[in-house]
Design a protein around this nucleic acid. Structure first.
Lengths: 307, 307
DNA sequence: CAATCAATATACCATGATGTTATGAAGATT
DNA sequence: AATCTTCATAACATCATGGTATATTGATTG
């Protein structure tokens, strides 16, 4: 109040800038003067001149007002999801191959939001969502296997492909027989991962029951690196291969695999309040994925799925 | 409150450090949560864990609390007279020769107090006290000439002496006749100053009616400087000469002059509130002057006043 | 210098934030 | 499961703060 009065040059003017009535401000000042035992404005001066003490207090008042404004601004940013934190976790290959790119693009539009990323499979993710240590999980889930305390929003059909380096002999042939595939070594995902069972199922579906695993346990970056330096094959979600297309590090063989019954989706806890930043990120992810699904469908028809 | 709760690790503990009851703090938090539309503490956690938003707001709260503490500290300092401003004015020779030294010693004990010094004679001082543009005036005043709206506190008898440089011929003689004095040129204070009439009266009292003025209009520093380089004489308050004793730039001739009817004193306005810093400075001045008066009396008996 | 104007102070009432004590509810712990 | 600690709620009191209406008082002007 003191700062407002001083800056606007009068008690009445000050009251206006404070959105208060003139008597209210007058009385507040009078009460403070009584409490301090010193005048805050010179006695008997009509354009109300501030005392020395008043100036000092006004200075602190300005600091307080600025902090109040900053707090208000922080609340606004937070409420509109433009500041805050979103903690997201998911299966490693997906996080590295798909989500991380989306996070980058999200952060270019919402630089105030901090993203905490971590990795895990369904059981850990479910537990962490329950404990509240993460906000969202991205994970392939069978529709009937969604834990009861979690919401599930599918975002992508779970289609896997056989992946290899663009330099792989099979990738350069326009046509090949399924038996040719059996000759090459395989990169297997970590044993616990859903992709590992996918791999077995997929190979079963094309009649390959016996295969040699040359490398296992690596993250996406390792897998791509190993593939690039060898003739190894692996099974990856098509979306992951698709996202790598610009880097030309991975390609998909035109082999139709049997698909798992799972869908990739976003999981979150049923009755845990959703922070605005999380909501914002969630919506962003969904939008990105519908866009991605379209582009995959368009391109997929041309390039893959032929046998 | 948020900062207190976070820092002391719990709502109850926070309430204690805030000197409030636990329910009061609890409800305040709840009201703020409702107003913000977001939680400030995690739901269902008993050692009450702060939300992200809460941390941000607590940060601003700490700023506000610090500013509040600073304001309180400023008020305390001000009320105890250890911070603030005192505006003092007085006759030039006195301000330069006596008061300025006291100001220096005052400021070494009260470095937070700002002293504004200015110069003037009784009429201006009286007016400025009336307008409130100065707080204290130091000036020789005749007891019956104190303006009615001013208080007057005498601090020193107005004794004048004939002053000269220590190297002056008369200062080196153990005895001399009054006629010898007439031979030397005089430094006269500014024509408007009380000292000027003192000069005439003093010389009249020892039978010198005709004297040559060699220099006039200067401040104390000029007068001392001119005296040092010449055989000029002047009339100065003995207190001024006394304060210069350490510098050995001025000495007093052992001539008994007739003294003006005025007393040096402190003037202040009757019904203007006295700021604590002014009060403090005022008391300090009075104490200094009683000390000075004693020392002058002791020494004066030995050195001067012999005829 | 009186009349007038603008600025501030006061009177009076309403409201709501904030304080208290007593007590209930719910995580945390053993 | 029992108990303890911690927090939330209930019920009430108080006072700062807000408003409108009006009085008071420096400032201004003819």
């Amino acid at each position: 109040m003191l700062a407002a009065i001083i800056d606007s040059g009068g008690l009445g003017e000050g009251a206006i800038t404070l959105n208060k009535s003139q008597p209210s401000v007058s009385r507040s000042v009078a009460m403070l003067e009584k409490r301090l035992g010193s005048r805050l404005f010179e006695k008997g001066k009509r354009p109300l001149r501030p005392t020395e003490l008043c100036q000092v207090l006004a200075e602190q008042g300005r600091v307080i007002a600025a902090a109040g404004d900053a707090a208000q601004a922080a609340v606004d940013l937070y409420a509109r999801g433009k500041a805050g934190t979103a903690r997201i976790a998911g299966t490693p290959i997906f996080m590295d191959g798909v989500i991380s790119g989306m996070i980058a693009s999200f952060q270019s539009t919402f630089p105030g939001v901090t993203i905490h990323q971590s990795y895990g499979y369904l059981s850990e993710l479910s537990e962490q969502l329950g404990m509240g240590s993460i906000d969202l999980a991205i994970c392939p889930v069978r529709a009937n296997a969604v834990p009861p305390d979690l919401n599930f929003k599918p975002i992508l059909r779970g289609r896997n492909v056989i992946a290899c380096a663009p330099s792989h002999p099979l990738a350069r042939k326009s046509a090949f027989k399924l038996e040719d595939i059996a000759a090459y070594p395989w990169i297997a995902p970590p044993a616990g991962s859903p992709l590992y069972s996918d791999l077995k199922m997929a190979l079963d579906s094309i009649g390959i029951h016996d295969f040699r695993v040359s490398f296992t346990g690596g993250s996406l970056a390792s897998i791509i690196s190993v593939m690039g330096g060898s003739d190894s094959l692996t099974v990856l979600p098509y979306s992951v291969v698709f996202m790598q297309r610009a880097a030309r590090t991975v390609t998909a063989l035109p082999v139709k695999l049997e698909h798992p019954e799972r869908e990739l989706g976003i999981l979150w806890h049923v009755d845990r309040p959703v922070r605005p930043a999380v909501k914002r990120f969630h919506k962003f992810l969904e939008a990105e994925f519908t866009g991605l699904a379209h582009r995959i469908d368009e391109r997929g028809r041309e390039e893959v799925w032929r046998r």
